[in-house]
Design a protein around this nucleic acid. Sequence first.
DNA 1: CGTGAAAGGGTCCCGGA
DNA 2: TCCGGGACCCTTTCACG
Lengths: 143, 143
Amino acid sequence: MDDIDRMLVGLLQEDATRSYAALGQAVGLSSGAAHERVRKLRERGVIRRTTIEVDQEALGRAVTAYVLVDGGSWMGDAGAALAAIPEVEEAHVIAGPASVLLKVRTAGTRELQDVLRRVFQVDGVTGTRTIVALETLFERTLK
Amino acid sequence: MDDIDRMLVGLLQEDATRSYAALGQAVGLSSGAAHERVRKLRERGVIRRTTIEVDQEALGRAVTAYVLVDGGSWMGDAGAALAAIPEVEEAHVIAGPASVLLKVRTAGTRELQDVLRRVFQVDGVTGTRTIVALETLFERTLK
DNA sequence: CGTGAAAGGGTCCCGGA
DNA sequence: TCCGGGACCCTTTCACG
């Protein structure tokens, strides 16, 4: 995990369609060496996978909301129960004004209401507070 | 934007290294036709770009936090001012207990404190409340 | 851990339906 | 809009430094 590895990760975050030849040239290595480094970054799990970034609105996901979830008994795997709700994009156990914070994306407010109902049915949940995003200023990948 | 397009988007979200031949086979088209559809999805902006998913901890980003930002005058482009802080991954104007919600990733709590200081210096900001993630149950791409 | 080259496969652009 | 073919580039591997 040296500076060259960090450069390769940065370049691939910007555009993962770059060829190994171009990557190598950018960091001062042959295509073979660049290929080998990227292979190892994948192997070690630094690079999890290569994906596409999708415009969620174009796919009918117009509403973004954050949900603060209250409740005490997080010993049972609430994680799995929350993961079973397809509209939940993230779930974090938090320090602060609630137990868990969710990021949720739905087609509309009606569907959001439905997701909240399902969250409420998860074991140990005693309440939810929802924060709706009116406008997303930006969502980006770091560095 | 028909069912085939949606399938192609789903397949590429899972693994963007798939060949057009494999994509075509999966949706019942030739490699050329699959290529053409994906090209148009990019052109229309449904597919924004192809990237890699990086293990943030492996890159020295151990702390994830959400910051509720208070303040009234969001006419000046606070968006640009917030985007100038590299540790801010997302920024949303919200309805609820604050004006803006940020997602922030830093190496440690010391760096988080530094980010909060810079957020406070943005025009119109009157206060912040920070929610630190103790454990991330999951972060995934939808569908 | 790096290079350079060779073989196989994929991308990408056609003419035609 | 899709198919099939072909030229070209890239990936992937390997012997060697």
